[in-house]
Computed example of a mutant assay.
Amino acid sequence: MDTTHTEALTGTLTVLGMFVLLVLPSAIGIVRERRIDRQLREAGQENRRAEQSEDQKSSSKPTEPSTATWYAEGRRSKKLVSSWTP
């Protein structure tokens, strides 16, 4: 190997190294996004399964409104009273 070949190899390796340095953050980001998408998809499937099982359970027994619903209904039925006086 003479000087010309050594310089060509050095130049090629330098260009490839710079290319890797430029592409690496993007590749890491793509892998991270795909992992997050997969986790969101799995969580959505679990939520759908839970909702389906809740629908099946709730259809077999009567439901009662929660305390929050009862409180909100009572608040809605009252008239709005303003304490501001001109």
Rank of each mutant, 00 (worst) to 15 (best):
M1E: 05
M1W: 04
T3Y: 01
T4K: 07
T4E: 08
T4I: 11
H5N: 02
H5K: 06
T6S: 08
T6D: 03
E7D: 04
E7M: 00
A8E: 04
L9M: 12
T10W: 00
T10R: 12
T10Y: 04
G11S: 02
G11L: 08
G11A: 04
T12H: 11
L13C: 10
T14V: 07
V15M: 02
V15L: 06
L16F: 03
G17E: 07
G17A: 15
G17L: 14
M18T: 13
F19S: 04
F19Y: 03
V20I: 13
V20C: 13
V20E: 09
L21E: 10
L21G: 10
L21V: 08
L21A: 12
L22A: 15
L22K: 15
V23T: 12
L24H: 05
P25D: 01
P25M: 15
S26P: 00
A27T: 02
A27S: 09
I28C: 06
G29H: 15
I30S: 13
R32T: 07
E33G: 02
E33I: 07
I36C: 03
I36Q: 06
R38Y: 05
R38F: 05
Q39V: 09
R41P: 02
R41S: 14
R41L: 12
Q45K: 15
E46I: 10
N47L: 10
N47G: 01
R48E: 05
R49Y: 07
R49E: 12
A50N: 15
A50P: 01
E51S: 08
E51R: 12
Q52I: 02
E54A: 12
E54C: 07
D55R: 13
Q56K: 14
K61M: 09
T63Y: 03
T63N: 03
E64G: 00
E64W: 08
E64V: 11
P65W: 01
S66T: 14
T67K: 08
T67L: 15
T67M: 09
T67R: 14
A68V: 09
W70D: 02
W70E: 15
W70A: 08
Y71Q: 11
Y71E: 14
Y71G: 07
A72Q: 13
E73Q: 13
E73C: 00
G74S: 13
R75G: 04
R76Q: 05
S77K: 09
S77M: 00
K78A: 10
K78V: 06
L80P: 00
L80E: 11
V81A: 11
V81P: 01
V81Q: 06
V81W: 01
S82T: 10
S83Y: 01
S83G: 06
S83T: 00
W84Q: 11
W84I: 01
T85I: 10
T85S: 12
